[in-house]
């Protein structure tokens, strides 16, 4: 998920760069630069989602290990 988020960040930046080259008018450029940044925000949201999932999984794993070993810190 984080990888997909990073790819979206790159994609958004590419949209911005392409808008600069291909679109001559200020309004069209502004619209596509805005669209590129919106894609980047989606990428950030995806990275954030991946981060939350990863940490929740890590916490669940820690909890299950503690449960198996019969108490806090028994795995050490």
């Amino acid at each position: 998920m984080k990888l997909a988020g990073c790819l979206l960040l790159l994609s958004g930046w590419m949209i911005v760069l392409v808008a600069l080259v291909l679109l001559p008018g200020l309004a069209a450029r502004a619209a596509f630069i805005g669209a590129g940044i919106a894609v980047e925000i989606l990428g950030l949201a995806l990275i954030a989602r991946g981060q939350v999932n990863q940490e929740k999984q890590a916490q669940a794993l820690t909890q299950s290990i503690r449960g198996m070993s019969g108490g806090f810190g028994g795995f050490r």
């Binding site: 960040l9 911005v16 630069i33 805005g34 940044i37 980047e40």
Partner: peptide, 25 residues
């Protein structure tokens, strides 16, 4: 004013779309 804001937005986009992925990678 409008063009200057766009220039700054291109900079912000570059930070998010280039600097962050490269730093993370």
């Amino acid at each position: 004013r409008g063009p200057q804001i766009l220039a700054q937005l291109v900079g912000v986009s570059t930070l998010l779309g280039f600097v962050l992925p490269v730093a993370y990678g």
